[in-house]
Nucleic acid binder design. Sequence first.
DNA 1: TACACGTGGCA
DNA 2: TTGCCAAGTGT
Length: 381
Amino acid sequence: MSSDRPLAAEPNRKPITPGEIFSDPVLMQLRRSLLGWYGSRGRDLPWRHTRDPYKIWVSEIALQQTQVKTAIPYYHRFLDRFPTIADLAAADLQDVLKAWQGLGYYARARNLHRAAQALVCDFGGVFPREFDSAIRLPGIGRTTAGGILSAAFNAPVPILDGNVKRILARLTALEVPVKQAEKSLWALSDRLLDRRNPRDFNQALMDLGATVCTPKNPTCLLCPWSDRCQTRQYNLQSQIPMRETSAPIPHKTIGVAVIWNDRGELLIDRRPPEGLLGGLWEFPGGKIEPGESMEECIAREIREELGIEIAVGDRLIEIEHAYTHFRVTLTVHHCRHLSGEPQAIECDEIRWVDVDELDNFPFPKANVKIIEALRDSNFRG
DNA sequence: TACACGTGGCA
DNA sequence: TTGCCAAGTGT
């Protein structure tokens, strides 16, 4: 221990490091108390009513970096639309992305689709029981593999998601950000895991993190582990887990064109298959440059991206939107097609569509706001 | 090993 | 308005 550690001073405390093994009787007590708590306080969640590894897989993917409340309606709609692995494998990627529209992190949908096709090819459309097979599937990492295999097959595989990291960091009063202790936290999750009931144990851990050992204001009075928690003992709940340092997020100003032709159709493009919002459709546009007016920006971007000339008209709407690593202001203008045949220069595909057809394409959230504004302005005449 | 990757909610 | 956080994975 360094003498100038950043945590509030409790001079004589002896933190438990994650690598340090709890004694067997303590481990048994922790398992028993958590499973007891889960029996009475655990959540009733849709994917806990099935042992179908496909359904559990879909739930685990939808839940990555996503709160339960947000994921639930997508879970139902996705399985309604693609009831089996074979259905998902046979579907068009565009339909899969449409089912995922609004949930974000669209690589999850692309990976689900690819993984389903791999399962049909290599495993007869059956989700594997082996960890080494599961973790090779795109979109399935160590935590998701553990979540699926423990929930579907009661396999003794540990997990280490955000909830478990926070719980274990607090249990041991971890003195470094969790990112710096991944290895020992995995070891602790594995050591704690109840081998007789890994399914309920892992689910209980996540419920505890989501409902009791929350990031802010944890309800330690309701926690089955409070008597063993080093963080509670020294009242460091607001300081552990320690914050990671993060860079400030930039802000971009984007000009966007809603381009009409003389048949009353508008122009949309499909983004490249990988990267930000990969495979989704959008209204074309781009970042404003220094000294440029918004009208100049939009005309230039459309010339560069689509090879056509347009007249930039009235502003339709301005949209503020936050992504993970940057924020944007979209300034959207009605535009009129003047000359040139649109070409897919910086995108995958372009299409002229009627307003009523827009619902058939997957759009990112910010573009859905544009579509809504378009409909509203039509109603007003 | 860091960083990219969406969206909603909350202070 | 800005920052942080939530059932992580891929590169």
